Amino acid sequence: MSDVVNIFDRSLLRRRRERARKDYKKFAFLEKEIAGRLAVRLTDLRPRFPLSLEIGARSGGLGNRLRSSGKIDTLIQSDLSISWATERGSDGPALTLDEEFLPFANRSLDAVFSALSLHWVNDLPGVLSQIRQALKPDGLMLVAFLGGNTLAELHKSFVEAEAANASCFTQRISPFADLSDVSVLTQRAGFKLSVVDTDTITVTYNNALDLMYDLRGMGETNLTMKRQRIPLSRTLLNEVIKYYAKRFAGEDGKIQASFQILYITAWAPAKDQLKSILPQYTASK
């Protein structure tokens, strides 16, 4: 970890997750949508993953889906937030842990799941490697997180507003990994039969201020170490709202915000991998 560049402020992430917990149900729509999409992907995979881990459990949306699938005997739910982990403990085993330091023995888990958590890690290659090592042979990693095109409209609006009013640019939107980078990192971590794909969820808002309000409620606002520490001025905020509406509003006057979701489905290496993961493949040969 000594060579890792700390892009994100992880201690701030923990505080924001704690702060968001109280009213999070109002803002959990994106997490619930991704949980549903991951659950659909799970239905097409092999029938049993007895001991599994969920990273970043938050409101429990994904955990509920996983338990109801009938494919998991024991689901360990974990979260960076102490409050979230404590609440999840009522559903079964739960841990407070940092995603960058997974406290699991090698070859101890049958599957690892995560919905909207891994985009905030500073060492994504290291985390993927730790997950692979914790998985048993033929163990599954099925995760989803925000990609680099997330909030492109808001990013462009900030760039334009700052260029016109401050003649400078500050990092207002956190940078996330691209699809091609994630595909390479997954293979380098030692996974086999990996599939990395993406889709975009578009959410409609009355204005950019409503979007920012939702991001705060989700605990998903800018966490870069080099973020601007001075509060956003009212003048600049108004300019961002106006520019966003000018460039990205539909005929009804409402704006759209894009969330790019990256999905990874990958397997820990094992002997006779296709036979154990895709029995219908070997049967047809």
Rank of each mutant, 00 (worst) to 15 (best):
E251M: 11
A266Y: 08
G253V: 03
N106S: 15
A257R: 05
T74S: 03
L278F: 12
L13M: 11
A152N: 15
K25Q: 13
F169R: 14
R17K: 09
L211V: 12
I72D: 00
L209R: 09
L142C: 09
E18H: 06
D79S: 12
D91T: 07
E54W: 11
S81T: 11
H119A: 05
G60E: 10
V112S: 02
Q171A: 09
S52M: 07
C168N: 13
G70P: 01
L262Q: 06
K226F: 11
F169M: 10
I7M: 15
N149Q: 12
K192N: 14
S258Y: 03
F104Y: 14
S78R: 04
I201E: 09
Q130S: 08
D138A: 10
N64Y: 12
S180V: 14
R14I: 13
L66H: 03
G92S: 05
K32R: 12
Q256C: 15
L80N: 08
D181Q: 09
A161R: 05
L237F: 03
T282N: 03
R19Y: 13
R19W: 08
E87Y: 10
S180C: 08
Y205S: 11
D9K: 03
V121W: 00
T150N: 00
P50S: 11
L118M: 00
L193I: 05
T198L: 09
L237M: 15
L12M: 10
P279Y: 01
N206G: 15
D98I: 03
G217W: 02
L146E: 03
G253A: 04
Q77G: 02
K226D: 07
S284A: 10
P93L: 07
R216F: 08
T198W: 09
L124K: 04
L154E: 09
K254L: 04
V184T: 11
P279S: 01
F176N: 04
R247Y: 06
S157I: 07
V240N: 06
Y281N: 07
K192V: 13
D181M: 06
S129C: 02
L116V: 06
S114C: 00
D178M: 08
F191I: 01
L12W: 00
R216N: 12
R172N: 02
Q77V: 00
L124E: 01
S68N: 05
D178F: 11
T186C: 11
L154F: 06
F191N: 04
L135R: 02
L75Q: 07
T235I: 11
E220L: 09
I241N: 13
G61S: 15
I277S: 08
A268P: 09
G63C: 03
R172Y: 00
F145K: 00
G70W: 02
G250L: 02
L151F: 14
D138M: 10
I82V: 14
I34K: 10
L30K: 12
Q171D: 07
D23S: 08
S129P: 03
L232H: 02
I7K: 14
D3G: 04
S157N: 02
G60T: 10
L211C: 11
L42F: 10
V112G: 01
D272C: 08
T224C: 14
K226G: 04
H119M: 01
R188Y: 05
L53N: 10
N238R: 04
